[in-house]
Design a protein around this nucleic acid. Structure first.
Length: 552
RNA sequence: UGUCCGAUAGUAUAAGGGUAGUACAACUGAUUUUGGUUCAGUUUGUCUUGGUUCGAAUCCAGGUCGGACAACCA
């Protein structure tokens, strides 16, 4: 009963509001992406926070596209964002767009003009920048700052009516040029852009800026808790100033620290660069920290949600260790992934005392973590097998529990074998390992009394199927590429993708299902890639198994 | 030389005047037909200096360090 997890600071705010009866104890949040790129794991944090908060306190969450800049936005992004949010397991109460409110926001602007709190400014961008002053020096008024209300109304209407070219005029709030907060120094509310909007088409040629759209949209929807990231803290006084002057619903903004992950980059701009310059296959490249990339890589919604829960919510900047993300996906997949065998770097093993031409069918459970194994599959066994090259050492160190001259191992689901000899080519590469097997040691009916420390996986040569296997590693060589000297792309990991053209897999894997995770025993978790076909199977490695083996 | 935000093990995150806890990571050991899983255990922490107090991670003051802010981006 009192076994509750402690609250994060936003939950505390909400509970306090609930306690004091604010907003009739209503909780309405929103997730407000700009449709100008794909969602990444950082957005997942925000999604889980916003939707999770509403779920926990019996509220709801709107999905609202912050589409106030037609030149960078596109419906392609709208669709991918909706797919990602849905895939993560969340349902929005309403699908909304800031552009739905352009008429109301326009009337809000008129209201401020009539109150003498906004004016049309003909200054150039450079002049406006100069007028803002610097953080340590106050700004100076624009020569157009004191136009009459009538003139401002007329000019603003003319802006709307398309009488002026892009950049000729802007609408500015008249606040305080001496404010220590740069955002209060007469911020721009509207700018002219003769651009086609993905939803409103050519209806508008003026578009509101973020600061005069976001808070207004929150207020129109009667959002109770508007959550955003730390960099919007200085915007909050402006957010509240507009609401106060307009006398509209008092939404409140709360800021939390965005998610950073080590060994990757998280800004849309940088991710877009990686895509455009061909460093990755696309937004959904399995090495990308995008939701679509993680999905293609084999991450599950449950694992991502669990991750977002574990990282917490606070106001201090943070860089989360990817090992936590990896822990979350392993924990999920360990319980759900079916076990299969695959040999990625094969070397042949011949069982010299096993009859030539003989085959027998063994059995392996699907998942040992589940009571009863969740069923199983047949595994063909024969005299010649492929095993992993790294599972044999000519001169094994102490505590090497695999094969080497005279050493014994268990073949998973099969017999114990003993290494009697091996063959090398001229170059010194091992080409064949010769073993004898112990017939009484068959898996499940072992009467041999022999105990071996190691168990290895294998594939019967005559029954082997092939597949392409893609092994992924971190995209960058350094923890925080964005903060290194020079271009972040200099720190890309050249070995982030390793393609194995011909891995050997067990026959059963030819019926692998898209979207399902498989554990290749001892090798990691894998899932079918979107480019996989029945003729050419392609598997992505989601994550390796945790490796406790330390070489001495 | 401005304003704002922040500072607790390697990384995150609790403790809201009264035992510094949890997770990941790391390390030991046990179990194991996956060097996986599971289980048991270990190591590592309150930025600093003062003040208030019987008692401070917590409250106050000064400092230090890190971050944000001067797009017709969001």
């Amino acid at each position: 009963m009192s076994e509750e997890r402690s609250l994060n600071f936003i939950e505390e705010i909400v509970e306090e509001d609930l306690r004091t009866g604010k907003h009739n104890r209503r909780v309405l949040t929103r997730f407000p992406p700009e449709p100008n790129g794909y969602l990444h794991i950082g957005h997942a944090k925000s999604i889980c926070l916003n939707f999770g908060l509403a779920q926990k306190y019996g509220g709801a969450t709107n999905l609202r596209f912050d589409d106030t800049n037609p030149v960078t936005e596109d419906t392609e992004y709208v669709e991918s964002i909706k797919e990602d949010v849905r895939w993560l397991g969340f349902n929005w109460a309403n699908e909304l767009y800031a552009s739905d409110y352009f008429d109301i926001i326009y009337s809000f602007a008129l209201t401020l003009i009539r109150k003498g709190l906004a004016y049309v400014d003909d200054s150039t961008p450079e002049e406006i920048a100069a007028q803002k002053g610097t953080p340590t020096e106050p700004g100076t008024p624009s020569p157009y700052r004191d136009r009459s209300i009538e003139e401002n109304v007329q000019l603003f209407e003319e802006m709307k009516d398309g009488k002026y070219p892009d950049g000729a005029k802007v609408l500015r709030a008249k606040i305080d040029l001496a404010s220590p907060n740069m955002h209060m120094r007469d911020p721009i509310m509207y700018r002219i852009k003769h651009a086609h909007h993905h939803r409103t088409g050519d209806k508008w040629c003026i578009y509101p800026m973020y600061d005069f759209a976001h808070g207004q949209s929150d207020s129109i929807e009667e959002i109770t808790h508007s959550l955003c990231t730390l960099e919007f803290i200085p915007h909050r006084p402006l957010y509240e100033w507009f609401i106060e002057q307009l006398e509209i619903f008092p939404s409140r903004q709360y800021e939390f620290a965005r998610l950073n992950l080590n060994y990757t980059v998280m800004s849309k701009r940088k991710l877009l660069q990686l895509v455009n310059e061909g460093h990755v296959e696309g937004w959904d490249d399995p090495r990308m920290p995008t939701i679509s990339g993680l999905r293609r890589r084999g991450y599950t919604p449950a694992a991502i949600r669990d991750f977002c829960e574990r990282i917490g919510v606070a106001k201090r900047e943070n860089i989360i260790d990817v090992s936590l993300l990896e822990f979350c996906i392993r924990e999920d997949l360990n319980k759900t992934a079916w076990r299969r065998m695959a040999v990625l770097d094969p070397v042949k093993l011949v069982i010299t005392n096993y009859p030539e031409g003989q085959t027998e069918t063994l059995h392996g459970e699907n998942n040992p973590e589940v009571e009863g194994g969740e069923g199983g599959r047949d595994i063909p066994f024969s005299r010649e097998l492929y095993i992993e090259r790294e599972d044999f050492m000519e001169v094994p160190p102490k505590k090497f529990f695999r094969l080497g001259p005279g050493l014994m191992v268990r073949l998973k689901h099969a017999y114990i074998v003993k290494c009697e000899d091996f063959v090398k080519d001229e170059a010194g590469n091992v080409t064949e390992i010769q073993c004898t097997y112990i017939p009484e040691s068959k898996s499940g009916q072992d009467t041999s009394g022999i105990n071996v420390k190691g168990t290895i996986h294998w594939i019967s040569v005559p029954h082997a199927k092939t597949a392409e296997v893609r092994l992924y590693d971190r995209l960058f060589r350094v923890e925080d590429p964005a903060n290194e000297d020079g271009d972040f792309k200099e720190y890309l990991n050249p070995d982030s993708l390793q393609i194995i053209q011909n891995a050997y897999i067990e026959d059963d894997l030819t019926t692998a299902v898209p979207g399902k995770g498989y554990q290749f025993i001892r090798k990691g978790y894998f899932t079918l890639d979107k480019h996989s076909t029945p003729e050419k199977l392609v598997f992505n490695r989601t994550v390796t198994l945790k490796d406790g083996w330390v070489k001495k």
